[in-house]
Amino acid sequence: MSQQYSGSRSEREEDVPAPDPVPAPAGGSAQGTTTDLDSLLDEIDSVLETNAEEFVKGFVQKGGQ
């Protein structure tokens, strides 16, 4: 699922599992989502395009309302 979306990081695409449809807990992180967050911290780089600065600067458009 992720490969059609990730930019130039094709060598790492296979590392990203499709997100699990886990039902969300009510209440805050105190109730335990730390493990899932850790795995996402490991994986997030593979869905982000590599050149962060160029990527962010490339997002410019006219103002709306």
């Binding site: 699922m1 992720s2 979306y5 990730s6 499709a18 997100p19 699990d20 449809p21 886990v22 039902p23 969300a24 807990p25 009510a26 209440g27 992180s29 989502t33 899932d36 967050l37 795995s39 996402l40 997030i44 869905v47």
Partner: peptide, 16 residues
């Protein structure tokens, strides 16, 4: 979905 950070957080249960 599957790319945006919020959608990933929600699918992992880190967003209620």
């Amino acid at each position: 979905p599957g790319r945006g950070l919020f959608t990933l957080l929600q699918s992992r249960g880190a967003a209620a």
